[in-house]
Design a protein around this nucleic acid. Structure first.
Lengths: 280, 280
DNA sequence: GTCATTTTAGAATAAAAATTCCAAAATCAT
DNA sequence: ATGATTTTGGAATTTTTATTCTAAAATGAC
């Protein structure tokens, strides 16, 4: 079996992973001729179609000729469409929910069992995570990291449903030796006065918003500390405090949420802050 | 455009959805001849391959002839392989990460930014969630729910990295008015003696295991309480205590985990227990 | 064990898809 | 504007893939 080689003219190496492909797509699209750029944009918007379509179908979808598709593939470092499709197809299996397992479970047990409920939370969690990439504004995130990296001490404020988020942040910051204080609300003790002008606050709260969180955030604002808000909608009361907002639209199952997306955002935030403070 | 019709001989209707397909697969497999049954089993185990493989590839994977694949498809109510593949391909698009959004972000900002890191945690979180359906044994889960629903009081034990899990459980149980105590480790106060024989303990710990969690679990076992373990591998020290094990294989990004899967399991567990205690 | 029926393997064929090629159109440099 | 160069559209060709067909093997009834 002979390895396909990149087409002539372009010396670009063959992308070996989806990630590499999209990086290349991002950097090369600009300087592509009209029709190829047109197709590149179509691919960027519909990457899911590549693995399961023919050249003709994709060409029609992007309103270009099949031969343009061919040239595009070669430009991207593949020998042809089939070669490129192979990459997309190999990436495909990963994204499949494990129907076999779930079906077997449903067959052996009812559809009203704990594992059926778990399957639902899993599905919703996956969607919420994917959503996160859309709702979180990268600029705001970068800004949040900057502010937190600069802060003397980071205060973590979030109760009830949001407490897992702040407590995980506390763990992560401790591990990276970033000075952070977890406001626990314990014994109704007031920790507000610990917040100094050069500090920053991460406030997490979701509707229905916890009064205490808003209070502490307001106090922090008065003392001049920066506020990063992990919350659910732009109209959240934290907006009034000129907080940097990171939005998480967590979907519910019944009255509960899996918090998958919030935790994910929290840990990414923490690690970024840790990296910017320590290394770099 | 004319609809393909089922092959001759079989009067079975064409499955219109993945769900219908698998139902049919389940009920028909038994009475299929040898080679067709062999292929049916292969499909049940590798449904993700169908959309992105050729007949020849699938045939080889299942160690049957291409013509056997063809006969199988007709037996299932399709006109042929292409017809069946169409169903598998159309089911697919939902499950894709939103590359378009990520690309745009990467174009506007670098690849070394917080949002790039977030994207990584999102990806890993999705995989972990999917994994969860495989690692959690439905029988064990049902058993755990039974035990917890029967318990007088539920004790929640888990520190450091596992604390978000237990604190979220505490929130959920409170909301559903299930009597639960969150062991906080606060002031090193010993809450062990609160655990009575008719209680149950949910112990969450991941490698490297927290000593305190294991201690409390051991004390609980002595006093006769049941133990449900949320942990990462079967060889976890909690296994020795004859705990009911719920396994979560959370993937890392660097030294950190998103906890998405653990939280998901926790909330599904909590809601099931709540439902079984209150309603039903 | 013999015959009828079902099932299988593999070659033969038909269909569909990918790839190449080249003349025409567009773009660019001068 | 003119000629050189790049890009494009679409038909022609090649390759791959799906499907059909048939003789042989296996199975089952008697």
């Amino acid at each position: 079996m002979s390895e396909p080689s990149p087409g002539p003219g372009s010396a670009s190496p063959t992308p070996e992973s989806m990630d590499a492909f999209f990086r290349r797509l991002g950097s090369a699209t600009e300087k592509l001729p009209k029709r190829l750029k047109q197709f590149a944009q179509y691919i960027a918007a519909n990457p899911d179609k590549v693995a399961v379509s023919t050249i003709a179908e994709l060409a029609e979808g992007a309103a270009v000729q099949p031969s343009a598709v061919m040239r595009f593939c070669q430009e991207m470092g593949f020998s042809g469409f089939s070669h490129m499709q192979k990459l997309f197809r190999s990436d495909y299996s990963d994204k499949w929910p494990d129907y076999a397992t779930r079906l077997e479970q449903l067959r052996e047990h009812g559809s009203d069992t704990p594992s059926a409920l778990l399957a639902e939370f899993v599905d919703v969690g996956r969607s919420s995570l994917e959503n996160l990439m859309v709702t979180v504004d990268p600029k705001a995130l970068q800004q949040a990291v900057d502010v937190l990296a600069r802060a003397e001490t980071i205060h973590l404020v979030g109760f009830r449903r949001a407490f897992p988020v702040t407590s995980y942040l506390a763990y992560a910051f401790e591990k990276m030796e970033v000075p952070a204080i977890l406001h626990s609300g314990l014994a109704n003790m007031n920790m507000d006065h610990l917040i100094r002008p050069n500090d920053a606050v991460i406030a997490a709260t979701f509707a229905p918003y916890t009064e205490l969180t808003l209070d502490i955030a307001a106090k922090a604002r008065e003392s001049g500390a920066d506020i990063v808000a992990i919350t659910d909608v732009v109209t959240s009361p934290l907006a009034r405090l000129k907080a940097i907002q990171l939005l998480v639209a967590e979907l519910d199952v019944g009255a509960f949420r899996a918090l998958s997306a919030s935790l994910c955002l929290a840990i990414a935030l923490a690690v970024s802050v840790g990296a910017q403070r320590n290394g770099k």
